[in-house]
Design a protein around this nucleic acid. Sequence first.
DNA 1: CTGAAAGCGCTTACAG
DNA 2: CTGAAAGCGCTTACAG
Lengths: 336, 336
Amino acid sequence: MGPTQEDVARRANVSRALVSLVLRDAPNVSAQSREKVLRAANELGYRPNAFARSLASKQVHTLGVLINDVTNPYFAAVYSSFATAAEAAGYDLLVAPGVRSAGKEGPLVNTLLEHRVAGLALLSPIMRTDTLREICTASPTVVIGRDVSFVENVDVVTTDERQAAKEVIAHLTDLGHTQIAHITGGANRSAHDREAAYVSTMREHQLQPLAVPGDFTEEGGKRGAAHLLRSKQRPTAVIAANDLCAVGAIGEFSRHGLSVPEEVSVVGYDDSQIAGLAMVQLTSVRQSIEQFGASALSMLIERIADPDIATRANRMPTELVVRTTTAMCQPAGANT
Amino acid sequence: MGPTQEDVARRANVSRALVSLVLRDAPNVSAQSREKVLRAANELGYRPNAFARSLASKQVHTLGVLINDVTNPYFAAVYSSFATAAEAAGYDLLVAPGVRSAGKEGPLVNTLLEHRVAGLALLSPIMRTDTLREICTASPTVVIGRDVSFVENVDVVTTDERQAAKEVIAHLTDLGHTQIAHITGGANRSAHDREAAYVSTMREHQLQPLAVPGDFTEEGGKRGAAHLLRSKQRPTAVIAANDLCAVGAIGEFSRHGLSVPEEVSVVGYDDSQIAGLAMVQLTSVRQSIEQFGASALSMLIERIADPDIATRANRMPTELVVRTTTAMCQPAGANT
DNA sequence: CTGAAAGCGCTTACAG
DNA sequence: CTGAAAGCGCTTACAG
């Protein structure tokens, strides 16, 4: 298993305790012995054993991260922002790669816990609420991307769906749209939150909401658009669950001879790479993902320091990036 | 720090050793005491301490992973395939999130090593070769995405660039193209390998290679295309460093009134989500990323079992996915 | 500054 | 099947 402090001590002709002191940068060590120890350690290629250290000191600087679905670039970006913040704060990360399976999340988190991580960050977990409750009891926890603020002992960072919906719908009504439909992200929690925000904001505008089922993929966007094409009252604007969904909808619309944005405006969510492509230029809701990580980490660190702190929910502001897929609503007769 | 085996033993009125045996599923334990122990463990919410276990048993089932750049969906996909394989094999993953900085990779790997990981997977590391050499001495290592097969004690999994270049160029020459240019991925190792494969394959076809500088972004594709538009002998086909680069090139071409694929064919690499979009439909080289992980893991496991095994390089086959951005070369005069 | 000692939570023979 | 004991590599007081 490689050299130990014992080996270093022997080589440097000093006590084991001294080695430990030097290696931890303790004060009150003569420059001479410090140097002797360091040299010996170097010659031996000594590397501290993080396990033994944690065991003895009862201190850990490893955080556990559960990712809903590693393949998804969205989660990768969220993870990245968390990882950057964590590294800056001196924490190592133990990562459990989720696979979009609610049942598997429990065991994955368990592994993290067995490694005695100091705290847990859950990225858009899809586990049941009771499982989540147990976990939050076992370890300081922060949840990103799912609003579970009703659970005790857990902080959350999410997108401010209400604000986002307000901004998108205001943009569209400013352009004269009133028939504004929503293609949903499916039957999961975050899709539901987005849809709910859409519905209530539409109502605030005295507009009739129309939500059709879709999901967070191009395919879902196609399905949703097809659905809308069949509806009696065809909308003049569509808010898709995310960019991929929006792109799918646009494709389906143009396949049916409906041009975007002339005949129908389309908005996506995420402001992903795809939205910015020159050949796409999608109007999209930008979420400040980069800030998710920093916010989550600071809350987690505070909760590690004091587990009984009151729970907090940080709903991050969004920003609408207007590109070329939204335009003035055409007068009613223009289509005919 | 939560209950220990000691606590469980006390509660179940048995010896500490028995608890250990039961918890490790050892044989020769009466159903009755097993049950007693399990119940006590459950009531106490006992969770084994992975550190202590590793320390005592000198066995680890944690693997370390260094990711060049977490933000990049390409690496996320590679990571994902490795993570899936590792989980299936019963390994936990400790992840070091790289930040595209050669200098930072060393320290990150060091952290991994201090956690006494059983082995290391390096995803497209950009560190210097000597750093890599040191690391490979310290721990069983597999490198994905960078051909370092000249280093001792390390296995590698990469794309078979030669085969890919052959397939792409054969496809284009079959379509009648002879002026085939390449927009490179910049001044890094993997871009260079791709370019070299392009150049030598062109030579094998007795064709004149023309490589212009770009990078792995849409912007790089634009720059490369602009460069090509200025060249005296305008190519009829372009092989871009990756999909994003290809999309950038296509945008630049159409901005200059050159239509794809009528006047110029374009091929990308990665067969990413973008390539498959209905509005893009890019011909692209598909790399079997899903298999990278499994291949890397199995080599790593073998090397953990026997560190002195001969080094292997697994160059994964690619597959050209033909979509709508490549077409027959127009007769020379057609443009005029 | 040094050295001897106890302990972190667990595993591993080993004698009963 | 059980119990007492040693040890994994390190940290932490504590008396010199």
